[in-house]
Structures are given as structure tokens and as C-alpha cells.
Design a protein around this nucleic acid. Sequence first.
DNA 1: TGTAACTGCGTATTAGATACGCTAAATAGC
DNA 2: GCTATTTAGCGTATCTAATACGCAGTTACA
Lengths: 247, 247
Amino acid sequence: MEKNELPADVAAMWRLREPPRRGPKPSLTLDDIVRAAIELADAEDLAAVSMARVAERLGNSTMALYRHVKSKDELLVIMSDAALERPEPMPADVDWRTGLTFWADGVLTAIRKHKWYAKLPISGPPAGPNNLAWFDSALGALKDTGLPEPAKVGVVMGLITYVQGEIRVAFDLAAGYAEDPSAFTQFGSTLARVVDPRVYPAVSRLVEAGVFDEVGSFEEDNEADFDFGLQLYLDGVAAFIERVKRG
Amino acid sequence: MEKNELPADVAAMWRLREPPRRGPKPSLTLDDIVRAAIELADAEDLAAVSMARVAERLGNSTMALYRHVKSKDELLVIMSDAALERPEPMPADVDWRTGLTFWADGVLTAIRKHKWYAKLPISGPPAGPNNLAWFDSALGALKDTGLPEPAKVGVVMGLITYVQGEIRVAFDLAAGYAEDPSAFTQFGSTLARVVDPRVYPAVSRLVEAGVFDEVGSFEEDNEADFDFGLQLYLDGVAAFIERVKRG
DNA sequence: TGTAACTGCGTATTAGATACGCTAAATAGC
DNA sequence: GCTATTTAGCGTATCTAATACGCAGTTACA
């Protein structure tokens, strides 16, 4: 119950597997595999990541990969941590609010490089080294707030939740948009045709107010919405910090 | 450019397909298929939903389904809307804050019945009738705030983002927990073993403070975290509403 | 009544994950 | 050095799933 109870994928992410003493030199490393898989996902998409395609990219056979990962799912878990890379170090001497805004933008920037991230299932706590580094970075931003540790965790969890929501909503939408923009540009007129004011009074009001008419740049709109919601959340955090300070 | 430019899946969700005049009476309806698929996903999980299993459940052949849905993906999209069902009507005369809290709890309650929801890809704007009803309900809660329509949309989008984040994070985690609780109960000691204080100073502080030691009920912890973050967000919204009122 | 528009379905194809076992390489211990 | 052991790569086989295609029987309309 003490030595190596770590789940296999966690151990793999931290590269804790002791290198074998015997046997042929591996011609392939876990890093190679993960890198190839990420490149493939970046270049095409997550659906293109099959064990066969990854192996092909490495000039190996499909089954060779299974010497390094237990299953495709394990590979995906490791990819999800690797894709985040390390957070850029927080600029020194920034207040917590600037810090968390910087952090949130950083997460989105990191993930924007790997749009498939949103489609990955999360199957455990953020136990990979990169994930943990991001977690640490956000916590660090709250260092001087005077909040007790569990409260910091709560604030950061809320932020993570919000950011994950953005990742899910915005990135999936963007993928859908890329696939069929007309579904979006016509969203307003679709609604107009389908929305009964008696059933959907509030949406109906929006349609009449023309809120859906100017679509704008999809990405910019999303960015603006994200920032707006983020600042609302941080306003709430600010009030909370004040409350705690006053006791 | 006017008649029926609706994307196929949207049309399907709204049941806009005109019933065919000729040919044999369908022995199968889209509703049957969606219901069967949802039952299957509820009883087992999303991975169990294959066209073959759904058809089997209906006493039909696999290929019969394809007369009613274009592809499995289309079925999943329709399922995702159907799973939400209709929101419970908002209690009359509640203030916006109570309304939005009620709303958020309602979403989670609805989705808790269908844990597979978190694993579904979202591939377009919320264009299904149930999705739209939820959207409408949240907007309606802001009716008396005096916010301009686009600001209401912003507030609701932020809320949706947060709730979707919760769905992604908490539900995926719960699934992971169900599968392998030890990964979670040992999370603290895992961290302790792996966390270098120089690399992860803030997390290291948490570990030392024992924050991860008492695990508590997984579900309860999550619920509490969700509410905490939600209230922070709503605090921000309250401040925003005040700001707008003052001009 | 013939025919066009359908439905359900059997069959076949394709893609993908992965179990199994073989062969050859590298090392540890003699 | 020699041999047993451990391990890497890989060929083959299996299993599951999605789905294209075309046939046969069914029904409304001309």
C-alpha cells in the first residue's frame, strides 16, 4: 500500500516508470508517441488519432505503441496533460485580479493551439504535472489576499469551472462553426422561423430586438463574452475577499 | 434560400419533417429511437449506445434506424436536446437572483439524470427546443433588472458557461470516481509524493495544510463548490446590475 | 391499376482497438 | 564468455461498430 500505488496513467504522466534494465533498447519513447499523437490531432482532429495513424507517423507498427501505453484511453489522458504545456510564469508583483485574468487568458491561449482538447473526456482529478502547474499558478495569484487556503481552492475551482465551460462551449461551437458556418449565420432567421413568442417569450424579444442579426466575428464575440463573464466572476471574488478581510 | 434551409439535425429536433404521404406506415418514429437511445445511455452509458443496441431494444434491425436519422452523430445531437427536457416553470415573483439560482440547480438536476450528457460533443448553437426553453427561462429571470437585452444575453451566457463547466468538470470527475475511487481517495498522498515544493509552491502549501486529506462525500463537496462559485458570479452580476441602474 | 415514394432489412465493406504469441536484442549472473 | 531472463517490435487474428447499397413489400395518388 505504499510503494507504487499510483494509477498507471498518473505514473506515466509523471514519467515515473523506471527504465527497464534488460531487453532491447526501445526505439520509441512515450514522449515520441504523445508528440506524434498531438501533432496528428493538431493537424487534423481528434478523430484522426488512431493507434494506426500515430504509429504510421512514427514509422512503427500499430502494436508497438502498446508497449508504451496501456490503451488508447491512457494515451488520451497523457495527451491532455501534455497539451497544456507549462503556464507562463506569472508576472511579478501583480495583484490577484490581474494575475487571475492573465491566468485565464493563458489557459485559453494554450488550448487554442489544441482545439481537440475540448473533446477529450476528463476522467480524473488534475493529476498531471502540467495541469498541476496551472493549478499552482492560479493559487499563487491569490497568495496575498489573506484568504484561508480552502477558500483559495474554492475561488480557483470556480475559475477553473468557468474556464472549462468556456472551453467546452466556445471551442465546440467553433468546431461546429468551422464545419458549417451557415448554421450560425442563419441562426437568427432559424430562430425567427421556429420561435413561438408564447413558448419562448424572452428569446422572442431578443429576436425582435435584432440581437442575433449582426453576427460579428465569431471568435471576437466569444472572446468578449468570455471576458465579460470572467470579470463578473472576479467582481464577486473581490467582494468575497473584502468580506473576509473585514472578518 | 427561404424554404427549408434548416440544418437537418435542427429540423429533426423540432420535428419539422413533413410526414411522408406514400409508402408503408413507419413502424418506428424518431421519438422511439431517441427514447430508446436515452434509456440505454441511462442504464449503461454512452459507450453502450450503438446503433445495433438501440435497434435491438426496439425490436428492429440496425439499418432501420437510418431511415429516421442520418447518422449516429445526428442521433446524439437530438439526444442531447431531448435529455434536457423542459425546465420547470420559474416560480412567480422571484427576484432575478433567486431565479437564476433556481435555474442553475434545475439544469444540474436535469443533467444528473443523464450523466452521459457531459460526454456529448456540442456541435452547434443551442438550437433545439429544450435547449432554447432553458435559455428562455434564464433570460426571463432577468426581466425586471432593467438590463438592456444584449447585457442580459451576456449575463446568461456567462452563467451557461459556468454551468457547462460544472457539467464537464464535476460529471466527468464523478464518472472517473465511480470507476476508480482510489485515484481520488489517494489523491492527497499522490500529490504528497509527487509535488516538489520548489516547482509547486502553492499546491505544496495546500498539501501541508491538509486540504486534501478529508475527502468528504464526493458529491457533496462538488455541490458546495458549485454553489460557492455560482454565488460569487451572481455577486458580480448584482454589482453589474447596480452599475447599469446608476447609469 | 400502375407507379412513385417509402419503409424495413439482409449483406458487405471498412475502420479501428487490441489480445496473443513469436523473434530478436540486451543484460545479469554464473 | 555463456545462458537465462526480460523486454521491444510486430504480424496475425478477433471483435465491435458504422454505414453504403440494393431488394422486397407497402401505400397514396394519378
